[in-house]
């Protein structure tokens, strides 16, 4: 097998392996979603979702994350075309958007806690903070990964190894946006709808 074909086969194997990890991560989120849905009415005389969610802010978060998923796609396209500059600026944009998302989410959490609505107040709030917080933790890990990745690309350029890492990061980041669609729908939209 030529070196190029071998590299391609390796990329295929690693991305399928990483995909399997993402599927197990889905199972983690599935159990958190199930917990949330079961406990969403258990407010223990505390606030319900209708009382605490600020929908315009949540819509902003959603759009920011969606745009960051798109810019991440631009980085992958740059990688495919061999344009290192495009990869770097697209990843920088992705980082800024991801960081903005996380700042908004943490300010939402801080506001809730400062108003006395922390995870200790009710089963609903425990489930809310666990589900949304786990997604936020994934975003934070993604941002750290992104910094390391950009550092490695700047140092070594687009080698077979950095291409592999960027491909996996792309899967991870798109996947996080996919999970957010369901948080947006089930936690927020359905939360204020009923």
């Amino acid at each position: 097998m030529s070196e190029k074909a071998e590299e391609k086969a390796l990329l295929g194997r690693t991305s399928v392996g990483f995909w399997l990890y993402l599927m197990t991560d889905c199972m983690l989120f599935a159990s958190l979603f199930a917990t949330f849905v079961v406990l969403r009415t258990a407010t223990a005389d505390g606030p319900s979702s209708r009382d605490i969610f600020e929908m315009p802010l949540v819509l902003t978060e959603t759009i920011i994350l969606l745009v960051s998923s798109f810019t991440c796609g631009l980085a992958l396209l740059g990688m495919k075309a061999g344009k290192v500059r495009q990869v770097i600026w697209a990843l920088a944009l992705t980082y800024m958007l991801g960081a903005a998302f996380l700042v908004i989410e943490l300010s939402e959490f801080a506001k809730l806690v400062s108003e006395g609505h922390s995870w200790q107040q009710s089963a609903f709030l425990s489930a809310f903070f666990t589900l949304v917080g786990t997604h936020g933790l994934h975003i934070l890990i993604g941002l750290i990964w992104l910094v390391v990745l950009v550092g490695v690309i700047l140092r070594r350029g687009m080698t077979a190894k950095t291409i592999r890492q960027l491909t996996l990061f792309g899967l991870f980041w798109h996947f996080l946006d996919l999970v957010w669609i369901f948080i947006f729908t089930i936690v927020y939209l359905m939360g204020v709808a009923v």
């Binding site: 796609g73 899967l171 669609i181 369901f182 729908t185 359905m190």
Partner: peptide
């Protein structure tokens, strides 16, 4: 009806992102 509609829209967007992004 609203819950079904929202669930449906989320599923459609999931398929869109699975096909076009992933």
């Amino acid at each position: 009806a609203l819950l079904w509609l929202l669930g449906g829209l989320a599923l459609v967007q999931m398929i869109v992102q699975l096909v076009y992004f992933l």
